[in-house]
Design a protein around this nucleic acid. Structure first.
Lengths: 212, 212
DNA sequence: TTTATATGTCACTAGTTGGTGACATTATCT
DNA sequence: AGATAATGTCACCAACTAGTGACATATAAA
């Protein structure tokens, strides 16, 4: 018999495993953004999804496995390593600036990303650890392809500078979203404040390319 | 009657409010370091202190108030603002470098400090918020006293650069302690890796003083 | 239509959470 | 020493936690 267009009886709800699984995963994302990773409890996830928690156990095994599957379902670093490496004559200077600006803004806007960064700092979890490794691998590409050829012997210092800049943008965005917007007297939530940071990034990158 | 040298009966333990309070506060610190702020539950704190949780309610009101009192009992930014402002002829360049190095190392070594930073990013809590404000105030002193006179019109950019550098060191230390030690290909737990970061700090500060 | 199975619902358990009332013990004051 | 208050101990509660067995309903195949 084909799929019915309409239920014949009055009670009972639609039955669709894939849709339900997706609704559960979406509920995890919403709760993560609204209340942080500490609030990801089975009962709340099920309630948010509007489904019985029993389904979480049937479809994902347990809460831990659900969270692992949620994490793997997102690809947070795709925006970095999917970038085509441009043919540069400036040793990657413009590319580096643009990438840092982009990271700064993406994390500022993506609250789910923010909470995953925090989650990653707060909990040991292999699926989160995997994100760290993915990020390292994706960054290593850039160093190998465009930075090393240009900076040669100074590459270790350039790596350290990159580490500071990237970390700085991460922490500034996390701090802005969760601690209040003023840092070193700059309002990190205002366009003017964020422009000030971007100008600083450009200055530091320029000086590095000129004098390192 | 004076304090007894020895209990006359066999059962019962020593009774000393201040000592017990201190043991409870210490238990909070230990748990925070060992298992993070999410593990700060009344039952566990009492068990760690070897005292009944009832005392927590009697002496601190409730768990929230205990945690607030714990936070206020630590003065994490004392090392920054207690520094005497040196009479500088270099516009504070050496001072800035030294302060950044020191922050980088202090946070690396002080696991309690790390967990408070994380806690602060993860939870809204007025006593934690107060730490943020203390830090802002203590930093503002430096800008007013030594930076502004030297950088004049470029001060906003110098503020942004400071924000990036400080944030960067924070996040690097947090990431090292909780995510694994490699960041941008540098081993942040090794003396060599950390020296590389300090060299990078010095370079960036030097360039800023030379060319901003 | 009948049957089998996947999907959804619900009531329940055992363990943990924050919190409290009643009691026992110790210190202190007179 | 005796009275009093402060300190420490314990049993208990209601609410919430993760997880499960039994059942109801919808879908799809025969």
């Amino acid at each position: 018999m084909e799929k019915r267009d309409k239920p014949t009886t009055t009670t009972g709800r639609e039955k669709n495993k894939e849709k339900s699984k997706q609704e559960i995963l979406d509920a995890v994302g919403k709760l993560l953004v609204e209340r942080g990773h500490a609030a990801l409890k089975v009962n709340d996830i099920a309630a948010k999804a509007g489904l019985d928690k029993k389904l979480i156990y049937r479809y994902f095994g347990n809460t831990e496995l659900l969270l692992d599957e949620f994490i793997q379902s997102r690809d947070f670093w795709s925006n970095v390593d999917s970038k085509a490496l441009p043919a540069t004559s400036d040793g990657g200077e413009a590319f580096t600036k643009a990438m840092l600006h982009e990271q700064f803004d993406i994390i500022f806007e993506n609250r789910e990303f923010q909470h995953v960064l925090l989650w990653r700092l707060s909990q040991q979890r292999s699926s989160l650890q995997k994100l760290v490794e993915q990020q390292e691998a994706s960054g290593e590409q850039l160093f190998q392809d465009i930075i090393q050829p240009h900076f040669k012997d100074s590459t270790p210092t350039f790596r350290a500078i990159s580490a500071i800049l990237i970390s700085g943008l991460y922490y500034l965005d996390l701090s802005t979203a969760h601690n209040g917007s003023t840092f070193c007297g700059i309002d990190m939530a205002s366009p003017e404040g964020r422009d000030e940071v971007k100008k600083a990034i450009d200055f530091l990158v320029e000086q590095t390319y000129k004098h390192l």
